[in-house]
Design a protein around this nucleic acid. Structure first.
Lengths: 310, 310
DNA sequence: CTGCTGCCATGCGATTCTCGCATGGTCGGC
DNA sequence: GCCGACCATGCGAGAATCGCATGGCAGCAG
C-alpha cells in the first residue's frame, strides 16, 4: 500500500466529479462507461493520493462527499476547466485565431502581393496581430535568424540562399514590357525582347547587372539604358512620355496608368523571378505563418504570367 | 498509433514544463530523476494526446518549443498550480483553517462550557466561520439530521438517543448542592443528599420527573419542592435568601453569587449527567468539528466533579 | 573527410497500473 | 428473514511506463 502521492491523474478527477454529481459509484460508472469496481478503485486511488481522509462517506444508499470532498469539488472543476482550456487554445491555434505573426517582405512585394495577402489574412484571421516590415532579402533573412521575424517574403534575385532557411515558392513572377499607348507594339499582348532591342530603356540602374534587365541580356538583346529611375512611378513617366520602354515585374504591374500598355514577355526571353516564403529550417513555423503562406500563393497566382489588365 | 486522447496525465505536464524550461530532454530527465528515454516518450505521449503537431522542435543541440509548445506553456503552469491548490486546500482543511462550523448546544451548555470552548476555538482557528445555535436535545438532533448543523452538544437527560448519531462523551458533569452562606453545612465541601432530605428545595419543576432532582430520588431522599424557578438566576435568589437549597449542574455553576456556597454531592447520590457531542453516524464530520470536540473535552474537564470556586 | 561527441528516437523486457468479472459484506425494506 | 441495492475486493488479462541498450543525426576538431 503505497500511501505516497504517485501523481494524480486527471481521470481520477473526472470520476470524482461524476461520483460527486450523481451520488453513487454505480451510477457514475454507468455514465462514464466503467464498471462499478473501476470507479471504486479510482476513488480509492484518489483518496490515497491525496493523503489521509476519505472524500466520500459510504452510505447504505450511495455515497455523499465528506468535507474534504466538498473542498476538492471546485478545485477539481477548475483543473478540468484548465485542461479544457488547453485543448481550446490549441484548437484556436490550429484555426489561426489569436497570437501574432511578424512578416518581412522585399520592397516590390509591398506593391500588391503583400498588401492584398495581408487584407485577405486580416479578414480571415482578425484576431492575429500582424506586422509587416520591409527590407532586402539579405536583411530579412538575418532578422529571421535572430527571431525578429516569423516569415520572410524574399525573391530569388539575391543569389544562393543558405541552407538554414526553408523556402517555399510562392509564385513564379511573370515579367512585362511597358510601352507607351501609341507604341507600334501597343496592340500586341505578347512580345519577344528582341523586338524591343533597339528601343531606349529606362531601368533602375545603368549597370544591367544590378537591374531587372540582367537575366534577359543575350546575343540578340543588349538593351541601351537611356534613363535611370528606381521608382516605378518615375519609370511610368518616361514610358508614358514615349521616351522609353521598361521591364516591369508582375508584382509591380498593379495600378498602371491608362496611357501605358503592358506586354507579356515570352518566357524564354527572361526567366521568371521566383518569390519565396522563407522560414527557419528545422523550426516549426507558427500556424499563422502557414496560413499566410497559403494566402500568399493564392494571391500570387494572379501575378504569374497573366496580364492584370487585359 | 492511437492518435486518440486517452487522458492526459499531470506527469506529462510536469515533464513538459521541465523540458521547456531547460531546453533539453536529457537535462530535464536528469532534473526529474528520469532517464532521457522516459522523457522522450512522455513528450511523445503528450504530443499525441494533444493531437496533430509537435510541442518541441528537435534541434541538433537540445529542443525548442514550437508555437504550440509556447501556447501550452502558461496553460500547463495553470493546471499544475491548480493541482497545487488542491493540496493546499486539503492541508488547510486538516489544519482547520477556513471553512465553517455550525454548532448546536443545549441551553445549560451556553452558560460556560460552550462560550469558553468557542473562545478557545476562535483563538486557535480564527479563519473558521463559527455559529452556535441553542436548542433542546431533540431539536438539535433533528437539525443535525437535516444537515443544518455539523455538531450538536447534547445531554443524556433526554433519554435514549437513536443509533443514527455518533456520540462522543465530552464530560461527566458533576452536580452541586447550593446552600445559603449561613447554612449549617455551608463550610462543608461535600455532602450526601440524605443530609438535605428535610430542606425545602427550589427546582425547575414541581414534578421531580422533569427536574434535575429526578435521578437522585431514593428511599432516603424524597425532596420537597417548595419553590419553582426555571432560571438559575431565580434559584439563586431563593437560595441566597435562605429559603431553600438547590441542585446545580456544574456547567451552570459558574459565576455563582458570593452569598451562596456550592457543595459537591457524593457521586453515589446522583449519577453524573453526561454531556455528548453528537454527529451523524457514518458521515465524516468536518475537521473543524473534530477540533471543536477536542476543545470541548478540554474545557469540560474543568466541570467534572470539581468545585470551580474553592 | 573522418572520427568523436552530444542529443533525441526506439526496440526490448520487467514492472506497475488499471480494467472487467465475479464474489463478499452491509444495510434498509417488504 | 429474505431480497435488493450498493460498495469493497481477489483475480487474471491487457496496457502503460520505466530503465537499459542501441541507433540515427548533426556539428565539430584534427
Amino acid at each position: 500500500m503505497s500511501t505516497e502521492a504517485h501523481e494524480l491523474s486527471t481521470a481520477w478527477l473526472r470520476v470524482f466529479l461524476a461520483v460527486a454529481r450523481l451520488g453513487s459509484f454505480t451510477e457514475a460508472a454507468r455514465t462514464l462507461g466503467y464498471t462499478q469496481s473501476a470507479v471504486s478503485r479510482q476513488i480509492q486511488a484518489l483518496e490515497s493520493a491525496l493523503g489521509e481522509g476519505a472524500l466520500f462517506d459510504r452510505l447504505p444508499r450511495g455515497v455523499a462527499p465528506t468535507e474534504r470532498g466538498r473542498v476538492l469539488l471546485p478545485r477539481a472543476e477548475a483543473v478540468l476547466a484548465q485542461l479544457e482550456g488547453v485543448r481550446e487554445d490549441l484548437t484556436a491555434l490550429r484555426e489561426v485565431s489569436g497570437g501574432r505573426l511578424r512578416v518581412g517582405a522585399f520592397p516590390t512585394a509591398g506593391a500588391a502581393l503583400v498588401p492584398r495577402t495581408v487584407a485577405a489574412f486580416q479578414e480571415r484571421h482578425p484576431d492575429v496581430e500582424l506586422t509587416v516590415a520591409e527590407g532586402l532579402t539579405g536583411a530579412l533573412l538575418g532578422r529571421l535568424d535572430r527571431g525578429e521575424l516569423d516569415l520572410a517574403v524574399v525573391s530569388s534575385t539575391g543569389g544562393a540562399v543558405p541552407e538554414a532557411y526553408a523556402l517555399e515558392k510562392v509564385v513564379d513572377e511573370a515579367m512585362y514590357a511597358a510601352v507607351p499607348a501609341g507604341h507600334r507594339l501597343a496592340r500586341r499582348r505578347r512580345v519577344r525582347l528582341a523586338e524591343l532591342a533597339d528601343e531606349p530603356w529606362v531601368s533602375g540602374s545603368t549597370a544591367t547587372e544590378r537591374s531587372l534587365l540582367h537575366p534577359a541580356v543575350r546575343e540578340d538583346f543588349r538593351p541601351r539604358v537611356a534613363y535611370v529611375a528606381a521608382e516605378w512611378i518615375a519609370k511610368q513617366g518616361y514610358v508614358a512620355a514615349g521616351l522609353a520602354v521598361a521591364l516591369i515585374p508582375a508584382l509591380a504591374a498593379d495600378g498602371v496608368r491608362p496611357d501605358i500598355r503592358l506586354l507579356a514577355v515570352h518566357e524564354e526571353d527572361i526567366p521568371p523571378r521566383a518569390v519565396y516564403a522563407a522560414t527557419l529550417r528545422g523550426r516549426t513555423p507558427p500556424a499563422a505563418a502557414e496560413a499566410f503562406i497559403r494566402l500568399l500563393r493564392e494571391t500570387g497566382a494572379r501575378f504569374g504570367r497573366r496580364l492584370p489588365r487585359p
